[in-house]
Computed example of a mutant assay.
Amino acid sequence: MPEHDPTLPAGATGRCVRERDCVDAVKAAATPGGPPVYVGAPTTGGAFCDTCVRYLRYAIAGLPYDVAELSTLLAPSLAVRYRSPDLPGPPPRVKLHSPMPLDGTALDLQALIDHEVTSWAESVADFAGVDWDSDVAARSSQRRRVHDGAQLLAYRYEWLLGMPPVWHRVRSAGERPTDGWPVESIDRMEPDDHGDLWIERDGVEGALVMFALRRTVEGFAGRTPSDRCKLPCPKCQRPALVREHRNRRIVCRFCWHPMGDNEYERMLDELAGGLGVLR
């Protein structure tokens, strides 16, 4: 949002760049008859609101646990897939590759987290003037490397948010390095002499990468809630209640106050009864 946005409160300089994904996103004026439009919460000088800065630290600190959880999801599905009779058969005496013994998606997500966390940790360490030995990191195990990198980023998150543009090698969780990248980012990529693609990103983009990695793992692991709940949190009054279907509970993503499904349903019934309306 531009700085002259008339809806901004006094003292605010802009809105959170997470826009609709902002925890404290607010509904904005929409075109009559059109879908609702949400904008990020007001900020006071930075790209993120105070709540999303807090969430950024949670997201970074959770990435090592995501790598560990993905290790439990490496087992293949063992589903039997039959070859279509309409496809031509392989040439005779050609040895086919054996089936992959692990779930490729989980492996690719682990590798992507490792790449992004390590890349940003090295850049932030250089920017903040702290020690980071790239050779030692390269010889470490993936879990150790992600743990150390996430620890540095969570502790130096202010340096991450204030970083100027830096160059990083492009990687994705797909077959091609550009899979899943937006078109506007692909247009900014440049190849090197070895055919690798590189992109220049600042710290705000790096923070958005951390959010995106966490959200991707949540979706793959089945932790993503279907939608937000109707009522605000009874403890902090924030509109941040979500229903975690796999865990069969309601939790506030701001103050982390948990509720059972039955408790939330009773709260809905009491509110509907007090207002004299049907649910």
Rank of each mutant, 00 (worst) to 15 (best):
Pro42Cys: 07
Ala47Tyr: 06
Val117Ala: 11
Ala128Arg: 07
Ala125Ser: 14
Pro76Ala: 09
Val37Leu: 15
Glu69Ser: 12
Ser123Pro: 00
Tyr82Asp: 11
Pro64Ala: 10
Tyr38Ile: 02
Pro90His: 08
Tyr82Met: 10
Ser119His: 05
Arg54Met: 13
Leu56Cys: 04
Ser119Cys: 12
Arg139Ala: 15
Arg81Ala: 13
Tyr55His: 15
Leu153His: 04
Phe48Asp: 03
Val67Ile: 10
Arg139Cys: 02
Arg54Glu: 15
Ala125Lys: 07
Leu112Arg: 09
Ala47Asn: 07
Arg83Trp: 04
Leu153Val: 03
Leu56Ala: 11
Ser119Met: 09
Asp126Pro: 00
Pro64Gln: 10
Val80Trp: 00
Met100Ile: 11
Phe127Pro: 00
Ser140Asp: 13
Thr72Met: 06
Ser84Met: 05
Leu74Tyr: 01
Ser140Asn: 11
Gly46Ile: 02
Leu56Asn: 06
Arg143Thr: 14
Arg145Ile: 04
Asp135Arg: 14
Cys49Ile: 03
Ala79Arg: 14
Ser84Tyr: 01
Tyr58Cys: 05
Leu63Pro: 09
Pro35Val: 06
Leu112Tyr: 15
Gln110Trp: 01
Val146Lys: 02
Glu69Tyr: 05
Arg139Trp: 00
Asp131Trp: 05
Gly104Asp: 07
His147Asn: 09
Arg145Ser: 09
Gly40Arg: 01
Gly46Asn: 05
Ala128Lys: 09
Val146Ile: 13
Pro99Gly: 10
Asp148Gln: 12
Tyr82Gln: 13
Ser123Cys: 11
Gln142Cys: 06
Pro90Lys: 03
Gly40Val: 00
Leu102Trp: 12
Glu69Val: 06
Leu152Ile: 02
Ala150Asn: 05
His147Asp: 12
Leu78Lys: 13
Gly104Phe: 04
Pro36Ser: 07
Leu70Val: 02
Arg93Cys: 01
Thr72Asn: 12
Arg83Asp: 07
Thr44Met: 04
Ala138His: 08
Ala61Phe: 05
Pro85Asp: 02
Ser84Thr: 08
Pro88Cys: 05
Ala128Asn: 05
Gln151His: 12
Ser77Gln: 05
Ser140Gln: 07
Ala61Gln: 14
Gly104Leu: 14
Ser141Glu: 13
Asp50His: 05
Leu102Gly: 01
Lys95Ser: 12
Cys49Ala: 10
Pro85Ala: 06
Thr105Trp: 00
His97Lys: 10
Gln110Asp: 08
